[in-house]
Amino acid sequence: MTSINSTILEKSLGQKVLKILLRILKSMATSPTTVWFVSLYIFGLLSMVFFNIARVGLNQDGIFGGPYYYTNLFLHFGLNNSSTYQSPLLTNPFLTTLFAPYLAIFFGMAFFMIPNAGRAFNSTGFSPQEGANSFAFFNQDVYGFEISFLFPKLNLFYIGIVWLPIIASSIITIYYKNWLSRETSLVSRSIINLIIAYFVGVEFAKMTDPNFKYVWQNFIPSILSERRNQTFVVYSGQYFPLMLMTILFFYQFIPIIVMGLIENGYKSSKVLLQTWKHRSVSMKDITTELPEEYKNIDWLTKNITDNKSVPKKEV
């Protein structure tokens, strides 16, 4: 009897735990933060497909080659130009498709912020021909990519690959969170951003030194030693991976700020429009038409005819 009871109790406890876990999973899956990352991914991917078709035409490579093309583009940027490292982000189609939109947005944001980065003439000493060959990917064969609106960084490449997914996913998330009355979590977004930043940062760093690794037994001595003498992170490439991760992580606050600006702009415009509408209705002149049945009501007549132009009492 006791064992039956305990089995029932265990089962019900197990079920309860499962129920709670399912509820947490459901809450996470339907959270505005998830919607933000999913919509950022979808719009990033669609943008890549669209611009890749614009680049190579409507064929198999045009439709499916976008993620690989843009991942390759960003990973081989600058000093990584001649790297032979076979990053899993390029060799594994699943990882390529999974990370391409985030990678493009992470690096796109970084290049957007770094002066002279991300366009053909990104440093002194480059001939236009050299620049066109090595950095032409930013406007290669896509009509309008080379066109700069207002300033060089605001060309169609950045608008299409970086800003469009950020703005579109911001709008979707704002609409969703207002509908659900739930807020996006800055902590969750930061944690996910940090994980992505670490992964893409390490892969970018490995382009100039594929032998990058951690030596965990040297972790504590390295903390206590000078930067140059540390032996915990073994890396001799051009871009220190942890620094890249940190920089990319901080760049990701820009989309968060963009979303805040869009939301506040939307809310303010809504209030302004409502105010304008409300004022146009409430400020309509009070009609002077008085129905027959109310004509003998003194105070009402006085209000209508005189519109109370003279104050009733001295204040």
Partner: peptide, 21 residues
């Protein structure tokens, strides 16, 4: 209100009552 049934008062006359009266 002052002898007038506000529930029967036409809306345009209620605007006179609101705020002013």
């Amino acid at each position: 209100y002052k002898g007038v049934d506000l529930l029967k008062l036409p809306e345009h006359l209620m605007r006179v009552v609101r705020g002013k009266e």
